[in-house]
């Protein structure tokens, strides 16, 4: 078992390395950042090329751009309300940045930047800081009444307020760890099953036949991970919308 465990390098795929040659190395530009750049270019390209024909009856790419636009716009308005239109570009950026990170990570030889807790936590902190700034700018100091629900008995204040503050501060933690853990788990499973395929097929004909098992699992896992990629991007952005709703309306 010990020898096998050493042969399986499930976490090596998450190691960072400089990208773009010497220039990238000099500014510590990693392959993770390269994937972010590719995602950004793909998002912008999709919208630019999609909006370019300006057709009344849209083609495929235009329909894709329009569906992307109107579904996120609908999500903002549904979840946050009329004020949600102000946050639409932010939610759009967040959703597609996370989605492209998840999806591009599923391609062979690529890198999943959403599998880094530093990246997801930075995004979650950005969300929570934005939410707090929005709440303070709209409600001023009245925002702090958020931590003590109206009508609760005053006697329970020493209990309720810390609970509410902790739950508020744990939002970025849960938001970032949810995405990070989903991505890491999926990619570790890919790597483990792939290692099994290699190791079993090295063990003769019977092993090669047996290797069909982990291969089938990986195929099924790919479908599942595609679902998870969309689901986690959706969860991340819809939770951001819900937090923004709370910030705008205070419950």
């Amino acid at each position: 078992m010990a020898a096998e465990a050493h042969a399986i390098d499930a976490l090596g795929q998450f190691a960072l390395s400089p990208a773009l040659g010497a220039i990238g190395a000099s500014v510590n530009f990693t392959q993770s950042n390269l994937m972010m750049l590719i995602s950004a270019v793909l998002i912008l390209g999709m919208l630019y090329l999609g909006a370019k024909p300006r057709a009344v009856v849209p083609g495929r790419l235009q329909a894709l751009a329009e569906i992307a636009y109107s579904s996120i716009h609908g999500m903002c308005v549904d979840q946050i309300g009329h004020e949600g239109k102000r946050f639409f570009p932010f939610i759009f950026t967040l959703f597609f940045f996370v989605l492209l990170g998840n999806l591009l990570g599923l391609l062979p030889f690529s890198f999943t930047y959403t599998s880094h807790i530093a990246v997801t936590f930075a995004l979650a902190v950005l969300v929570i800081v934005l939410v707090t700034i929005v709440a303070l700018s709209i409600h001023g100091l009245h925002f702090f009444s958020y931590f003590f629900p109206a009508g609760a008995p005053k006697l329970l204040a020493p209990l309720i307020i810390p609970v509410e503050v902790i739950s508020y501060l744990s939002r970025p933690v849960s938001l970032s760890i949810r995405l990070f853990a989903n991505m890491v788990a999926g990619h570790v499973m890919f790597a483990v099953f792939s290692s099994f395929i290699v190791m079993m097929s090295a063990a003769g004909v019977l092993g090669t036949i047996g290797a069909v098992g982990p291969l089938a699992l990986n195929v099924a896992l790919m479908g599942f991970e595609l679902l998870v990629a969309f689901l986690q991007a959706y969860v991340f952005s819809i939770l951001t919308c819900i937090y923004l709703h709370d910030a705008v309306h205070l419950h």
Partner: peptide, 17 residues
């Protein structure tokens, strides 16, 4: 690289936004 990745994330995310 773990921290520099976040700095580049901030730059790329802000530019994309």
């Amino acid at each position: 690289l773990t921290i520099s990745q976040v700095v580049w994330l901030a730059i790329i995310f802000f530019a994309l936004y």
